[in-house]
Design a protein around this nucleic acid. Structure first.
Lengths: 167, 167
DNA sequence: GTTACTTTTCATTTATTACTGAAAATTCGA
DNA sequence: TCGAATTTTCAGTAATAAATGAAAAGTAAC
């Protein structure tokens, strides 16, 4: 396989994986393209390389910046905006964890706390319902702590230690 | 809030969370409904409770069984099939981890191994590309090991120990 | 082995999500 | 301050994913 083919396959596959994770295909593809671009590139470059419209590029770039995965950079003497992705994959992973925690886990905990406030706690079936909700809450809080730890820890240090203990 | 309202909200919210994770809304709702059902229920019960068609229920039930999250059960003297969900939330979580590992991580590792076989390893840009691919591979393998450990370990034992070490 | 009940399939329809492209807004150099 | 270059927005359209419902297949009681 040639380098250009491999790059293309990486971009396509990254897009497909993104879809499975509830991430829009194009956003994942733009991120992939930036990950394997050695130099900063413009919106026009992205439009051309992925054959997509300006509006599409623009919106997804905004989202990717919102996820903290890519950055605007200024190139000397250029009017256009350029973009780069953080190439440190561990940082990419922790950034995604951080964001998902904020966007999903926090609202989840809020929901669960709310569901525990039912009036008829003695009623038929309340006990079982509260049990499930309570268990999910407990698990979510554990996941929350685990994510905090992962965000703070460094890659090898973290995972190797964990594996060492439990394997 | 009344119990019935709380149950309804749980089902709806679970569906919404599912969507964010790339899981079809109805599938998540059926799982939620089964989680909070104290007794096994039939396809007709699910149709009625969620106001969805027979075909929809049937397909999603098949998927949920494929994920190992729900089970068929035989009820004495009943012709119809009944379904239940495993109520142990830690088991639910490990089952999901196990499946995602199989369905997503394994194909990912296969892809990455493939991408490393480029012909022109000395060419311009090859080094950077191989660096990114190699890093993702390393991270994926670490994630793979971590998931293995999580699947084997027990909830509190696992998470508490991890937190204790790194916090 | 016929019938009534139940489950499964899948072509068609509907709903959801994503994309386009042109117009509006913004930026910046002269 | 003007005007060209660039970015952003968003109504309309297209693509994708999910749901329906009726027909087919399967099951079991008699």
């Amino acid at each position: 396989m040639k380098l250009v083919e491999a790059k293309q396959q990486f971009i396509n596959s990254w897009g497909a994986f993104g879809t499975q994770w509830g991430i829009n295909r194009t956003m994942a593809q733009i991120h992939a393209l930036l990950l394997i671009s050695t130099e900063p590139i413009t919106q026009d470059d992205i439009m051309e390389q992925l054959s997509i419209s300006r509006g599409n590029v623009n919106m997804n770039i905004r989202d990717l910046i919102g996820w903290g995965l890519i950055n605007r950079v200024v190139v000397q003497g250029e009017r256009k905006e350029y973009f780069t992705a953080d190439k440190d994959i561990w940082k990419v992973a922790t950034q995604i964890i951080k964001e998902r925690k904020k966007r999903e886990l926090d609202p989840m905990l809020k929901l669960l706390a709310n569901l525990e406030n039912i009036e008829d706690k003695k009623e038929n079936g309340s006990k079982e319902f509260l049990q499930v909700v309570g268990d999910i809450k407990k698990l979510s809080k554990h996941a929350d702590s685990l994510m905090d730890v992962m965000i703070k820890a460094e890659e090898n240090k973290f995972i190797n230690a964990v594996i060492k203990i439990f394997k």
